[in-house]
Design a protein around this nucleic acid. Sequence first.
DNA 1: AAACGAAGCATAGCATTGCTATGCTTCGAT
DNA 2: ATCGAAGCATAGCAATGCTATGCTTCGTTT
Lengths: 207, 207
Amino acid sequence: MPRSPSPEVRSLLIDRAAALLAQREPVTLRSLVASTGVSTMAVYTYFEGMPGLWGAVRQEGFRRLTDRVRSIAPHRDPVRHLASLGVAYVEHALAHPNLFRVMFDASFDLPDPVAANETFSHLVAAARRSIDAGRFSLDNDPADIAVRYWADGHGIVSLAVTGVISVADLRRHAPAMAAAVFIDAGDAPEQAHKSVRLAWAIPKRRT
Amino acid sequence: MPRSPSPEVRSLLIDRAAALLAQREPVTLRSLVASTGVSTMAVYTYFEGMPGLWGAVRQEGFRRLTDRVRSIAPHRDPVRHLASLGVAYVEHALAHPNLFRVMFDASFDLPDPVAANETFSHLVAAARRSIDAGRFSLDNDPADIAVRYWADGHGIVSLAVTGVISVADLRRHAPAMAAAVFIDAGDAPEQAHKSVRLAWAIPKRRT
DNA sequence: AAACGAAGCATAGCATTGCTATGCTTCGAT
DNA sequence: ATCGAAGCATAGCAATGCTATGCTTCGTTT
């Protein structure tokens, strides 16, 4: 049998790619392996080439987002919890803007729909709890609310990450937009605004 | 004095880049000039390199969007007009998905904030008319409504273009999301839904 | 009208990119 | 102890964006 592959090398390369990305340095085959001790062939052994590496980096981005989302303790106010998920999404994108771009870079033909699924399922679950708690109307499909809420946050974040609007505008508009989605889902305006305000007031991680 | 530069070559290259993009073929320096009769140096004469070309392609994308937006005759119902602008945005992105991606590709350090301004000003104007007509609350800032409406549409379109959601889901959610923004701005729910429904019912251009 | 010269731009060659070919090394199975 | 499949280092390939160089063009000048 062969020499066993070391998962360490794999995550080493992914981490280095993420680091280069964060430093705004070009992520090339040779810059990746530089100062890692491994040769360029490792990228082909573990990722079958650069596109495969990008796919892995993308998954890593979703994994970090998922970690962040999982770290949010469910709140007794399900709408506040849902709002907190949106905060996590925004903070993740602002903390890792280049990683965020790679995550949604459509130049991959591998749509990799699984990567985002866990995050999405958290949204759906929170939406369902909000319905069950009587905050959202019973005729809502939790998945529909989740899609709209996601699209909502994704849009304002994307515009900020691409520089079309400022981060200050993002922070100004995002809470109001979230509240609008919740109100549209049937929540009472005052309750929606309160839940959103509390969710956004929590101090954010810098990671 | 020199040989005068020909704007024809400039737009020829931009159009060819857009065409390659639409055909999902790689846009490289040499593939650009192939079968155009000009040499690779033309790209440096007119665009100072590939990044400059990408910037020009991006502007071209916004120019086409602006053309589409300008072609929308103002409606006596200002909210319906505003909704139609959103429809144009969605149809533009679906008709030219790769161009849409380049338009919002943040790998350019040139934010080129002017490019999107005309489209944005149309949104602001329609929002202002909606306020003046009494459809939206007087305490709204038209620019705020415009930003939120844009972010709203941009988000759902981006998720569709990157393959996270289907185009069918896009068409299902986009009208409801638009209506939610309008209702949040103060419009009566029934009127908002009616204006949106009529705007989306108009047959779309294929361009 | 003839000469000048600045700018367009065609050709050729450069460093860097992702990738492949090749062979050495490692290490579990027999 | 031997074999062989897999890891992986080295070297070299075509393609990329870019630069250097010089020819061509054509408005300006006298």
